[in-house]
Each structure stands twice: as structure tokens, then as C-alpha cells.
């Protein structure tokens, strides 16, 4: 008789909707927020593991002020059983986030932690790895397939690397970060939304967790990158080849 993984913890971040914020001329500040798409993939994977009967509880965790509760409820509407929001409105860096998450994990003691490989606002791609380092746990990053093995004591993970695919086994507990092709997240349904109303959001503070962190990076400004200007229109292949030879000198 195999034992299910008792608890999966999924960490997720609220980010400005990348498809709205990316529109030209949009400052990004007015865009509505969504669950970071890679974290949504991580949540979906946890749900699928539960649907295969391989875990009994999925706990979501996020960090931010009460204004992100809409994303917390969205995670629960997807199917996360309960959620913890660490109430902290500061602009945190990945290392601070990792240290706060370590505090949550030490309290919750999950056997598996899932999260996206990166947040699409900050694009750092660090938290999962830092967390694994802090906890001394195995890690699998850029993961496109997860299989639980050996009575759920190990996870076989396919990783998408620059050179192709790599398969590694990690002993549990472990941190796994989701890449784009791990799965396609489900659409949040109205029944899910209504069920989520009954699920509790457990709001905690860093003080309650006993985690004192100060961000070590400081964002001093953001600016739009210099834009490449549109070049020349060419009418034919022949003209293009001439330009490449004589003007651009790339041939």
C-alpha cells in the first residue's frame, strides 16, 4: 500500500497581468493583477497530483497586502485547499521571499514544494533555488514533467535545459519549479469560485513566523528600453540580398 504525499505547498505571486501590462504605452500600474502564470502551472500540477490520489492536501502560500486576496481566492477557486498570505506590503527581493517561505515551510512541513520557475514581472528566477539552498533540500528547476516514484519518496523530473531535456530524480522533500510546458492550467469555474468562498485565508505576519528579513536589493528606477527604430522596407528578395551585402555587410 503506497502512501500519498501528505501535503504539497504551492507558492505563488500576484503580478500585473502580463498580457495587459505589456501593451505599448501602458504604465503597468493600472493593469489588473493575476496569479503569476508559471505559478498557476505549479498550482495546476499540484491539483493533478491530488487527482491521481498522490497527495491529500494542497496549501497555497503568497506574500503581499490584502489587495492580493483576489489572487489568493483565484488559487483556491482552482482547487487549493487553503491558503496562507504573509501580510507584507514591502517590495521584497527574491532572497527575502525565500527566507520568508522558509519560515512557512518549517511550520507547515510539506513533503513537496512547487512554484513557477520565475515571476513574469521581476523575471529573476531565483526563489525556488534559494529556498532549496536555505533548507538544504534537493531541487529541480525548469521542470516539464513530474512523476512520483518509490512510494512517493522521490520525484522523477524532466527539466528543460538550454541543450534539450534532462531527467533527474530528487528525494523528497524537495523544491520543484515549473516551466511553461509542465501543463496547461485549468480555467477557474464558477463552482470552484463558490467553493473557494468557504476556504479560509490564513493571514500571518513575518513577526508571527519569527522571520526578520530586510531586502538586500534596492530598485532605484525603472525606464523603458531604447526602442529599435523601424528600418527599410524592401520590395523583393533581390533587393534584400543587395542590402545585406552592400549596406549591412552581413553576407
Amino acid at each position: 500500500m503506497t502512501q500519498p504525499v501528505e501535503k504539497i505547498l504551492v507558492a505563488f505571486k500576484s503580478v500585473p497581468d502580463p498580457y495587459e501590462a505589456a501593451a505599448p504605452g501602458d504604465s503597468g500600474s493600472t493593469a489588473k493583477s493575476v496569479i503569476n502564470p508559471f505559478d498557476e502551472i505549479a498550482i495546476e500540477e499540484a491539483l493533478r497530483i491530488r487527482e491521481r490520489g498522490e497527495t491529500s492536501e494542497i496549501v497555497g502560500v503568497t506574500i503581499g497586502p490584502s489587495s492580493i486576496d483576489e489572487q489568493v481566492r483565484a488559487a483556491m477557486a482552482m482547487g487549493v485547499d487553503r491558503a496562507i498570505r504573509i501580510d507584507d506590503a514591502r517590495l521584497l527581493d527574491p532572497y527575502a521571499v525565500a527566507r520568508i517561505l522558509r519560515g512557512v515551510i518549517e511550520k507547515e512541513a510539506p513533503q513537496l514544494v512547487l512554484m513557477g520557475k520565475q515571476a513574469v514581472d521581476d523575471d529573476s528566477n531565483q526563489v525556488g533555488q534559494m529556498l532549496a539552498g536555505l533548507l538544504g533540500w534537493p531541487q529541480a528547476t525548469f521542470v516539464s514533467k513530474i512523476e512520483l516514484l518509490d512510494n512517493r519518496t522521490r520525484a522523477r523530473c524532466t527539466r528543460e535545459t538550454d541543450a534539450g531535456l534532462e531527467v533527474i530524480d530528487v528525494n523528497l522533500p524537495a523544491i520543484i519549479t515549473a516551466d511553461l510546458r509542465l501543463n496547461e492550467p485549468r480555467y477557474v469555474s464558477l463552482p470552484g469560485l463558490i467553493k473557494a468562498r468557504k476556504k479560509p485565508i490564513d493571514v500571518q505576519t513575518c513577526q508571527q513566523l519569527g522571520v526578520i528579513v530586510e531586502p538586500l536589493t534596492r530598485l532605484s528606477s525603472t525606464a523603458r528600453p531604447a526602442r529599435r527604430s523601424a528600418g527599410t522596407r524592401v520590395e523583393s528578395v533581390a533587393e534584400l540580398v543587395i542590402k545585406l551585402k552592400e549596406e549591412a555587410k552581413v553576407l
Binding site: A22, L219, A223
Partner: peptide, 11 residues
């Protein structure tokens, strides 16, 4: 950051 649509200056 933001898929390259913004450049952040960080210390």
C-alpha cells in the same frame, strides 16, 4: 524586467 519591456536599475 516585465519581459524586457522595462529596464530596472538596482543597487
Amino acid at each position: 524586467i516585465n519581459a524586457g519591456s522595462m529596464i530596472a536599475t538596482v543597487q
